[in-house]
């Protein structure tokens, strides 16, 4: 049966990138425990709107945990307390009556706040632009079955490719490093024969781009792996390291 709970929310409000922000307190009353976290914010936003106030800005789109658009740090945990769950899939039944919930945006120099909980994540796209692809023009491909790929490699590649690019790894990392994100892409492509010709170039230019974008350095804190809503493993980071050394020390790439 539907249960309802009352909550105190402390939400980060910030009018714009250059503006100062602060935590504002709101009461969330009669919240159905069947609601998703984002639906709970919807409800607050409807209230705020009717009270003539500005609703809380937050990014979201698919609301089924696949687009990677949503995300906020809830009580110190990116995407909230449930393992392997995005914020849009987190349900209010995981909270108790009279809880206080602190909601903050992803915090990283590379992800400036746009407004309230919405942040600018184009740095992730920039890394992919630097080499997160296989250079194959449309039309030039051979028959799909001409290149066999072992099931193991395909599965490992799929594990890495499951990344939704939400940025929770950066938000969770004590150093705001983007290594898990980067390593997932490098790993996916390194595991396929198709990705090999460009492997060295890819590893070097993607890492270089990452370093320029203002992310921190990985120090193997493994918080990223623990918070990743798709549970992507840091074995990908080890693979990225190997790819990078191979490229840096043993290839002709500069």
């Amino acid at each position: 049966m539907t249960k309802t709970i009352n909550l105190t929310l402390k939400v980060w409000r910030q009018k714009g990138q250059k503006k100062k922000g602060r935590l504002e307190t709101y009461k969330a009353v009669d919240i159905s425990t069947d609601m998703s976290f984002l639906e709970m914010i919807d409800v607050i936003n409807e209230q705020l709107t009717l009270e003539g106030k500005e609703p809380i800005a937050f990014d979201h789109d698919c609301r089924e945990g696949i687009c990677g658009m949503c995300g906020a740090v809830v009580n110190g945990r990116p995407h909230g307390p449930e393992k392997g769950t995005t914020l849009c899939q987190l349900h209010m039944r995981h909270f108790s009556n009279n809880d206080t919930i602190v909601i903050e945006p992803w915090r990283s120099r590379a992800f400036p706040v746009i407004k309230d909980l919405a942040v600018e994540r184009s740095a992730l796209d920039r890394m992919i632009q630097a080499g997160g692809f296989i250079s194959v023009n449309t039309g030039g491909a051979q028959d799909a079955n001409a290149i066999p790929v072992s099931q193991e490699a395909a599965e490992l590649a799929m594990d890495a490719a499951a990344c939704i690019g939400c940025g929770a790894c950066v938000a969770a990392c004590p150093n705001a490093s983007a290594m898990l994100f980067l390593s997932a892409k490098v790993s996916q492509l390194a595991l396929f024969p198709q990705g090999k010709p460009e492997a060295a170039k890819r590893a070097i230019s993607m890492v270089r781009e990452m370093d320029m974008l203002g992310f921190g350095n990985c120090t193997n804190e493994t918080e990223c792996e623990a918070e990743c809503p798709k549970e992507i493993s840091i074995t990908n980071i080890a693979r990225l390291n190997r790819e990078f050394y191979k490229a840096g020390f043993f290839s002709a790439e500069k």
């Binding site: 692809f133 296989i134 099931q151 492509l189």
Partner: peptide, 22 residues
């Protein structure tokens, strides 16, 4: 058919059989 070829060439991790084919 060209779509599948194109996607595989791009590195789309389609499911595969034990023999490594799609």
């Amino acid at each position: 058919n060209n779509i599948i070829d194109q996607c595989v060439a791009q590195g789309v991790p389609f499911a595969r059989d034990y023999g490594g084919l799609l």
